[in-house]
């Protein structure tokens, strides 16, 4: 992994109709790194990504993406960035091959035919080359979109919730592909809501209501949260509600018959749980989900 910064932006802000969508975002992404971008809905992830690839002009702030100025050199950035939109945005009435061919022409690629052919083979689209994009299922659409944004061999991929609405198998294949690309030295910035995907990133950033609240490796974030978790079993049907009321317990998640409780003060949780008869509990590893719920709980929603 090279240490050069592919994305290095400071204090980027953007408002729409007086409403702050992104508030002073500073972000660094290194070469060959998969950076996960997390945050609740409407937290400014899409706006941030669009500012990075020149689709939106920041109101203020500065920085570079691939050593080009995000404010003035968006055209240069666009040439070397692959951007995958949240909503499928290729042409429904063109076939897979025609869509890829269009993209290849847009980037002025010399060996267009062979590039398109190779990318269809790489992503397993070759059998469906003449199928219209509009008739593809979610997983295939997403593959087409990835193939299209990889076509011009970008150094940086910006993926905006690429796996929303895609089945687990297709999701896993997709992430295997992302890791393969990262192995080739391509950097990836990916926004997601899935915690298993977050765990597969090298580094994570958590954004809420326009502010980047935390960033680091998954392990760093787990450590920083100081959360301790337990799995709790009991026969009481209303156990969930009772657990929530116990001192020291900050989060309760029901998972079938098991409750996962977490909090920052492990000793206190132990004491609370010991006080209830018929409960069995055991310490477990805290997941990223709990870390992010904790971050979300700490940021009161700003409206307007």
């Amino acid at each position: 992994m090279s240490e050069a910064l592919l994305i290095d932006v400071h204090e980027l802000s953007k408002s729409f109709n007086g409403k702050r969508a992104v508030n002073g975002l500073s972000l660094q992404v290194r070469g060959g790194e998969i950076f996960g971008f997390l945050g609740p809905n409407g937290s400014g992830k899409t706006t941030s990504i669009r500012m990075l690839c020149g689709l939106l002009t920041p109101d203020s702030g500065s920085g570079t993406c691939l050593d080009f100025d995000v404010l003035t050199q968006s055209r240069e950035i666009k040439k070397q960035v692959g951007y995958m939109t949240q909503r499928f945005s290729f042409y429904d009435d063109l076939s897979i091959r025609e869509n890829l061919d269009f993209v290849a022409r847009m980037y002025g690629m010399d060996n267009r035919r062979s590039v398109v052919e190779q990318s269809m083979i790489d992503l397993g689209l070759a059998d469906r080359r003449e199928q219209l994009a509009g008739t593809l299922s979610g997983g295939w659409k997403q593959r087409l979109a990835l193939a299209a944004c990889m076509l011009h061999q970008p150094r940086l991929l910006l993926l905006d919730e690429p796996t929303a609405g895609v089945d687990p198998k297709a999701r896993r294949d997709f992430w295997d592909e992302i890791h393969r690309l990262a192995g080739q030295g391509i950097s990836v910035l990916v926004s997601t809501h899935y915690m298993d995907e977050a765990a597969r990133c090298h580094r994570l950033g958590y954004i809420a209501y326009g502010d980047l609240l935390a960033s680091g490796t998954p392990d760093e974030l787990l450590a920083a949260s100081r959360l301790v978790s337990f799995n709790v079993r009991g026969s009481d049907l209303a156990l969930g509600e009772r657990l929530k009321a116990l001192p020291g317990i900050e989060q309760v998640v029901a998972m079938g018959h098991v409750y996962s409780v977490s909090g920052t003060d492990g000793e206190r949780i132990r004491q609370s749980l010991s006080g209830i008869e018929g409960l069995r509990f055991e310490p477990v590893e805290t997941g990223l989900e709990q870390v992010f719920i904790q971050l979300m709980d700490r940021t009161p929603e700003k409206i307007g």
Partner: peptide, 13 residues
Amino acid sequence: ERGTLENLLAMPV
């Protein structure tokens, strides 16, 4: 309407 404009704008055109 179909959202393809976003893609078009993301390309160096």
